[in-house]
Amino acid sequence: MAEHTSETMTLAGCEIEVLRGGKGPPLVFLHGAGGAHNWMPYMDRLAEHHKVYIPSHPGWGRSDTPDWLDGMGDLAYFYLDFLDAVGEDGVHLVGNSLGGWLALEVAVRATNRIRSLTLVSAAGIHVEGVPKGDIFLWDADERVYNTFYDPKFAEARLAKQPSEEDADIALKNHFSTAKMAWHPRFYNPELQKWLHRIDVPTLILWGDSDKVFPLAYGETMQKLIPGSTLTVIEKCGHLPQQEKLDHFIAAVTTFTADHNGGA
C-alpha cells in the first residue's frame, strides 16, 4: 500500500480531513454520497500515478458540518477556495456521483486551476424520461445491491460489520447527501445551461449497468460538455473504482497522461 497521510485543513471556518498520498501531477478526487474517509484500493492505485488529494466534503466523514452548508453551490465555492489553498496549478479533477456533480459546479464557475476533468457516474443533470434510482426510498440492503452490477460485490460489502465510527459516518454522509440532493433530486436545473463554459479536457466514465444514474445520463452529459468523450465500462454499476478497478485506473491514468501538458 502506498504511503498516505491524513491532514486537516480549515477553510471558511470549516475543518475538513484530506487524505493524501503518491507523487506526480496533482489529482483531486471528489467523493460521492458514500464519502471517502478510509484509504481504499482505488486511492492507492491512483497514487501510483499522481499526487492525490482526497478531501472529505464539509458534512461528510470526519470533516465538520458547517452552519453555512445549505446546498451544492456552497460546496462549489468551498472547493474553489480549496483549490486556491492547495495552490496547485493544473489539477486533474475527478468526481464520482455527487462528487461528479460537484466537479461540474466548480468547473462552470472557474477552470483556472483545473487541467482536466473526469466525471465518473456523475450526478448533476436531468434526463427527461429516464428515471433515476431513488436511494432515499431504497432500504439499506437495496442501496448496496443497486450500487453494483455484480451482486458478489454487494454481498461482500454487506458481510462486513462496519465499525461504530464507520456506521456513524455512513449516517452523517446520508444526511448530508439528502441536504444537498433531495430537491431537485440529484441535479441543479441551472447547471445544464452553463456546461458549455467547461473549457478543459473532459472524460466521462460510466458503467453500462448503473442503476442509480442510468447510462443515458452519461450520454447526455457528453453532448452538453464541449469536446468531452464518453467511455463506457461493461458489466459495471455505479462505482467503477470499486467494481472495475483496473478499467477505472487505466481509463483515468491514460486520460490524465494525455493531458499533462509539459509535465
Binding site: F136, L137, D139, L171, A178, K179
Partner: peptide
C-alpha cells in the same frame, strides 16, 4: 411503511434517527 419512508435523512437529529 418501511422505516426509510417514515424517517427520511435530516427529518430528525442524527442521534434520534439512530
Amino acid at each position: 411503511s418501511p422505516a426509510q419512508y417514515k424517517l427520511p435523512p435530516g427529518y430528525s437529529s442524527l442521534g434520534s434517527y439512530k
